[in-house]
Nucleic acid binder design. Structure first.
Length: 588
RNA sequence: GUGUCUGUAGCUCAGUUGGAUAGAGCAUCGCCCUUCUAAGGCGAGGGUCAGGGGUUCGAAUCCCUUCAGACACACCA
């Protein structure tokens, strides 16, 4: 059973509340906002005073009189009626040694492990990875690791965008530009590389806006691919393979992995069944040639009177019907999403499906989820959760673009931070270590992303992402590297930790907060509190490191204890970084 | 227009079920390497928590409202 400090304090409080004659459900505990005074505090006495008609400080005194912290906790009243709680040095020492023994000793596991599928809302095949593809794998990878650490079973699926109009557009454009003559037995194929795709898709994408005929063609090609018609299907498969290779490589560099490399196309065999379910249950209807499912509830999607004929029809509480088949019977995003849910339920029957997709698709997911619940494709007790993360913006408040108005390639960003790390390593006399440079660069990138609250947009600043000072990933790595060095020089002669100094207290308190942040992150599906608490722990160690000379300590027990404390911090930092998907180097 | 989200220091952001003097990083200005990695530590300055009401013993946090911004709103994904 893991040692969970906050739970223990709450239990003590509840028991004291009960003995003092108060409702134990009103007991609460939070971090003390002034660390000089206390570690934790209870603010419930004001509420008690109101409920029981007593003075708040009297309530507090009664509770404190009944409080039994078994030599782990010290409590005192602080005016007007706060209960301050301090962990004893003995308790802190016990906790520190537990972590030194095994860094997982402080992890609060989930009560009932869940089966979870994670969906990364797919990079598009035929499209270069750009800055817009940064967050999903980074956030997803971290949540994946967090869920596993806390005891859940997780399967991740990249869910490639490989079934939509973008495929038809690309193929149609390639055909028009004469790349595919061989497939049609009209001559020879021109070689298609990734660079070709990077040119052809954007070209097609722009063209469809101004050239209705081309758009029609692209739609027809899309339809042919989806129906497996040759040679379109073979062309499609060839392009997909080419593109997936590159995507895999990029994600691997980012340290993001997927258990499954399925795509929208993987759900193809389930599409007809899904459509039939909707039809049989009378949930689908035809509208303007498309097949749609109504998902609006009472009071939603109420038409607003138009002022003129030409005005677009708008709705109060918009919740438009979900299109599951286009006018030409082709599939759309929603079709494959629904079919994918059916597929996953037959293959894995997960308790929860997490979609790590940016917030702009919120309405889309809400409608897909509702449709699946209505049709029973998703069982009632299954949680479908859209982790709607914010977009990466430029200074103008819009999605990040370069000065010339283009999106920034993911590869370029990675190479840039890596180069920056190489530069910095050179100053430390470390040259020719591309692996280490990459570790550091990726740490800066990931930490910079994950330290933002997940659902908020953030402003991408090249300087911030390639700076390694202050609250950054490399700072935490640096702290770890210093500890590693310390342990090497101290011959790893580690002893029992005995917390005495203020600097040591500070470390262990921040250690406890770091472990508690795992559960906060889990609750919120956001990693920012772990990022912060890791920084605080590293920072607490740096203070200790500056003030206490470990290796020159004459008292052997003390020296070994200091080394123990250092090693413990390293283990905790390594575990925390590992959840973020960041590696801890031994030197830097 | 309807709806969702956002607005906190010069910049980028935290702020745990409402609690004690609103915090951090960067930037600026001081100080600290004859001793374990200075990618570090310590200190200083910097705030109308967008504005206005309300609830409360207590509001950055809850409610109402105004303003500003981002995004979404049927055959793209």
């Amino acid at each position: 059973m893991a040692e969970i400090v906050k739970d223990y304090i709450l239990d003590c409080l509840k028991s004291a509340f009960k003995k003092a004659g108060y409702d134990e459900e009103l007991a609460s505990v939070s971090y003390a906002n002034n660390p000089n005074v206390a570690d934790y505090q209870c603010n419930s006495c004001f509420a008690l005073a109101k409920k029981y008609g007593e003075r708040p400080d009297v309530c507090a005194s009664k509770i404190i009189a009944e409080f039994d912290g078994q030599k782990k906790l010290e409590v005192e009243l602080s005016k007007p009626a706060f209960i301050n709680i301090k962990l004893t040095d003995a308790y802190l020492s016990k906790i520190a040694n537990l972590v030194l023994e095994d860094e997982k000793n402080l992890v609060k596991m989930v009560e009932k492990p869940l089966k979870i599928v994670m969906d990364y809302g797919g990079a598009n095949v035929a499209k270069e990875l750009h800055i817009g593809h940064l967050r999903s794998p980074i956030i997803g990878e971290a949540l994946y690791r967090l869920n596993k650490l806390l005891g859940n079973g997780v399967i991740s699926d990249t869910h490639l965008g490989d079934w939509g109009l973008q495929m038809g557009l690309t193929v149609a454009q390639l055909e028009d530009d004469g790349y595919l003559e061989g497939y049609f037995n009209r001559g020879k194929n021109k070689e298609i590389t990734l660079d070709t795709l990077n040119e052809e898709y954007p070209k097609a994408s722009k063209r469809k806006e101004v050239d209705p005929k081309f758009r029609e063609k692209a739609e027809a090609v899309t339809y042919n691919i989806q129906k497996g018609k040759e040679p379109y299907f073979t062309i499609y498969k060839d392009i997909r393979e080419l593109s997936v290779k590159r995507i895999k490589q990029n994600y691997l560099t980012l340290g993001c992995h997927f258990d499954l490399w399925y795509g929208e196309s993987s759900a193809y065999p389930y599409i007809d069944r899904c459509i039939n379910i909707f039809k049989e249950k009378g949930l689908a209807r035809e509208s303007e040639g498309a097949l749609v499912v109504d998902v609006a509830k009472e009071g939603e999607n109420i038409p607003i009177e138009r002022k003129s004929e030409s005005e677009v029809q708008r709705y109060k509480n918009p919740m438009p019907p979900l299109i599951i088949k286009k006018h030409n019977d082709a599939d759309v995003y929603a079709t494959t999403d629904i079919a994918t849910i059916l597929m996953r339920n037959e293959q894995y029957a997960p308790d929860r499906i997490l979609y790590i997709v940016d917030f702009r698709q919120d309405l889309q997911f809400e409608r897909v989820f509702r449709a699946c619940k209505k049709a029973g494709i998703s069982p009632e007790n299954q949680e479908l959760i859209h982790i709607a993360y914010g977009t990466i913006n430029g200074k103008d408040g819009h999605a990040f673009k370069t000065r010339s108005g283009e999106t920034v390639k993911l590869e370029d960003i990675i190479n840039m931070v890596k180069a920056k790390a190489e530069e910095r390593l050179k100053e430390n006399g470390i040259v020719d270590d591309p692996k280490l440079a990459m570790q550091i660069g990726i740490a800066a990138l990931k930490y910079g992303d994950l330290s933002n609250v997940v659902y908020k947009d953030y402003i991408f600043d090249l300087d911030k992402f390639s700076s390694f000072e202050g609250k950054t990933g490399p700072y935490i790595q640096y702290t770890g590297a210093r500890i590693s060095s310390l342990l090497r020089k101290g011959n790893n002669d580690v002893g029992k930790i005995n917390v005495e100094l203020a600097e040591e207290r500070n470390i262990v308190i921040n250690l406890i907060k770091m472990y508690e942040s795992f559960n906060v992150c889990y609750q919120e599906n956001s990693l920012n509190s772990l990022c912060l608490s890791l920084y605080n722990l590293a920072s607490a160690f740096s203070l200790f490191y500056n003030n206490v000379k470990v290796l020159s300590e004459k008292d052997e027990a003390k020296r070994r204890g200091y080394l123990g404390l250092s090693k413990m911090v390293l283990k905790a930092l390594t575990l925390g970084l590992d959840v973020l998907g960041i590696e801890m180097p031994e030197k830097m």
